[in-house]
Design a protein around this nucleic acid. Sequence first.
DNA 1: GCCGCTATCTTGACACTGTCAAGACTGGAG
DNA 2: CTCCAGTCTTGACAGTGTCAAGATAGCGGC
Lengths: 200, 200
Amino acid sequence: MDKAPSYHHGDLRAALLREADALLRQDGINGLSLRKLAERTGVSRMAPYHHFQDKNALLCALATEGFHELEALVDLAQLDEGQDLTQGLRGFVHGYLRFATDHPERYELMFGRPLWKAGAPTDALRETAFAAFRRYAERLGGIIQRANLPEGARPLRLAQASWATLHGLCKLLNDGIYVDRADMEEVSEEAVRLMVAVLR
Amino acid sequence: MDKAPSYHHGDLRAALLREADALLRQDGINGLSLRKLAERTGVSRMAPYHHFQDKNALLCALATEGFHELEALVDLAQLDEGQDLTQGLRGFVHGYLRFATDHPERYELMFGRPLWKAGAPTDALRETAFAAFRRYAERLGGIIQRANLPEGARPLRLAQASWATLHGLCKLLNDGIYVDRADMEEVSEEAVRLMVAVLR
DNA sequence: GCCGCTATCTTGACACTGTCAAGACTGGAG
DNA sequence: CTCCAGTCTTGACAGTGTCAAGATAGCGGC
């Protein structure tokens, strides 16, 4: 556990990711600078570059972890079983909102423009992120099929539209734009109604 | 039109906003630096500070213009008259998506975290942004009332949820996350279905 | 045990950013 | 004409990501 501070750190990369997460929580995504991170980890400013190609690569790695959690969250949601549809959706929606609002900086990193538009996202990030979505779409497809609704290519579209609702809600909430944290409960319920309504 | 380049520019501020918009389009929100802007406008780097307190203030001013356009767009939408509901909503949704995807950088600026969370938004920005939303909520309230649905505090919640859907869709589209530009037509139609379904 | 190779870490330097401080100009009011 | 307040400028500083080149150390082969 306690390490004599030798020239070779031994387990940088992991330490970097850990400290980066803490720094993210503390200073936000804009406050996360490689130099601060290096200093905090007790290493010189260029050391991280031996474990990550870029600042972008480091952020992508961090975001990828987040998407793994998100995927687990989708798996946990009781969307498929004979369970009540509204109840299942409500659970997922609440879980998603909670995930996003508990760690806003992390969520912003995962879905933020800096990674996806400005810096090119890593292949690993792309894959992990889309895996979570694909899983969600499959679940929704199962529901549609079981309720034998007019299917078509609809499951995908519905998954996109409903995820957009969730995502937009989280963004508005986290940035404090049109919906207040105090409204969270009621608005999320309205979102559930939206999704359920279209599923009948 | 042609100005002898005198010591006093005469109409900076306006020129700054104009050039800033162009620079935004060209280099994206991250590429918009005050120094580049100043040089492009043909003025020294500190000149903008006599017309805007901050970089933040300048960006807020730019975003405010955007929200004025958005408000006009809400006003244009045929949401209230006896017109077919689906048709009216579809028009608004398409208009909104078009607004966001035609000028992604501008949209990102308007609703982005840098202004709303990191830097404190100007009072003017706050006001303009919320005015647009309020107008939208009123329209929706009118629809609900005319169709005498169970009202309650629902208009506001519905406005929040549906705006979130739109917003999330635009974000996903512009950042290229779960929904591709090629899917735009179909997904937006699904969004319309979402909103209409919950209005019955 | 020793040599050398390679992964790892370091310091120096550069171009870039936003902004504080202090000076230079100038158009208009008195 | 004078002076002043509004406008613009240059100098400086701390902070950023990252290229280049040097320092260190652990590990396999002899």
